[in-house]
Design a protein around this nucleic acid. Structure first.
Lengths: 239, 239
DNA sequence: TGCCGTCTGTGCGGTTGCGAACGTAAGGGA
DNA sequence: TCCCTTACGTTCGCAACCGCACAGACGGCA
């Protein structure tokens, strides 16, 4: 499969001033992002950062007993590997490709070079970090207070925003892992949404039929996160 | 009450190189931090950052229906108002003093001056940001997967780490608000810990009797967060 | 001394999600 | 074609937590 994607499909890269972008371009390497690919494990030193163009990456926390929970999702609006620029080198998270596609990757050495210049990349990533923090804290709140139905709506909408199509390739088992709930719970919640005519799913393929309907049903968490992303990282970029 | 605290009691300030610290010192203003004081509201522009010396500040998310949940706690190891340096100016959180004490505050203009130098303060705050992110994501996980007993242990230990004494002034009602659970639930959980001889509480005063016992009972979340703080922000600082 | 507000303890029914087990149906490969 | 894997649906008992209601218990104040 030829990679017909431009790095500019990643919103962060697109938002960079032309000179910075041109400086970085030779070092950006296109990579396939197959479903399930582990970009890094918890505690592992990061060797690359990834700028997704048409894939979705989940940040997961893996517990001692093996169960896991999704902390945040990253698509073409962001970057995977923030810990590199934060100075910690590692994170206690796992990053996994949740929806297959492509990305551009950049070696840690190159990234640090650019950071050291204290230029637009640093400022941009700071804003993105704040948006990501909002997403994480909203996840904490949502985990505590909202029903599985609503959380599923939130998750579907977050995924949808990061994809071109309204079709997700995702089994209920995987969704359950992401949300940190049982597979049976997802079966019921998805059944509710299907009965309401909002989605249609069939053996690992979910089609969103009525996006406005989902937005009516979702908890406030989704809008809060979306507003914060739009506020901090307007797209198309103003430059 | 005279303020006999030095800014150096805040670990971040203490970790700064002497020249940077001396440059900032004239602008640091001591402030009282009474219980319940709201440092900023959700969506409000930040006018100051605060470096706590002997108080604890909670970051809370307030939901549409008025209920709230704690996202993170900040004590003398950190700074309140990170959003200022991230570039967003506001956050969708509320910051409230959870345990009375003191802090040093710094106007937003002064902070930005220092950030612009791209110096040690920026690098230090980046590391702190990563530690805070760890705390937030661990909160998300803990909310989903662990029992109220364990969450209460975690909360007590996090608070204890940020205080000099083993005595907390805190009603069950307030703890319930922080944890986003019912007051009755806290009554039961605290009763369990009291029956186990780990704590003693009496009308808004909690005394920790057996800290190692709490650490045995707490979920993994506490240690993960603590390790990450120790790794990213060693104290005393190496300089 | 008596009253009132705050803080804590307890009980009850209802809901939600967990854990495990089992059934079914649709591909995919030999 | 048959078998086996994957994906989804359903059930049942169990535990945790919620919402509500109310009771006691302590402390400050008149």
């Amino acid at each position: 499969m030829t990679n017909h994607h431009s790095p500019l499909e990643n919103h962060l890269l697109d938002a960079l001033p032309t000179d910075v972008y041109k400086r970085m371009l030779p070092n950006l390497e296109p990579v396939e992002m197959p479903l399930g690919k582990v970009l890094y494990e918890s505690g592992e030193a990061l060797r690359y950062v990834y700028f997704p163009t048409d894939c979705i990456v989940s940040l997961l926390y893996v517990m001692e007993n093996g169960s896991q929970a999704e902390i945040a999702v990253i698509g073409n609006e962001g970057i995977v590997g923030l810990a590199l620029f934060m100075g910690g080198e590692t994170t206690p998270n796992r990053a996994v490709v949740q929806s297959a596609g492509h990305a551009y990757c950049l070696s840690s050495a190159r990234v640090k070079q650019e950071f050291a210049l204290n230029g637009p990349l640093l400022r941009l990533l700071l804003r993105y970090t704040q948006a990501l923090i909002t997403q994480m804290s909203q996840t904490a709140v949502c985990n505590r207070h909202h029903s599985l139905d609503q959380q599923l709506c939130r998750w579907l909408l977050l995924s949808l925003d990061r994809l071109a199509s309204n079709n997700l390739v995702m089994t209920q088992e995987l969704i359950a892992n992401m949300l940190g709930v049982r597979r049976e719970g997802v079966t019921v919640a998805a059944g509710n949404l299907q009965d309401a005519g909002l989605i249609d799913y069939y053996r690992g393929h979910i089609t969103v039929l009525d996006r406005p309907g989902l937005e009516k049903r979702v908890c406030e968490c989704y809008q809060v996160v979306k507003h914060e992303f739009d506020r901090l990282l307007p797209y198309p970029p103003l430059k």
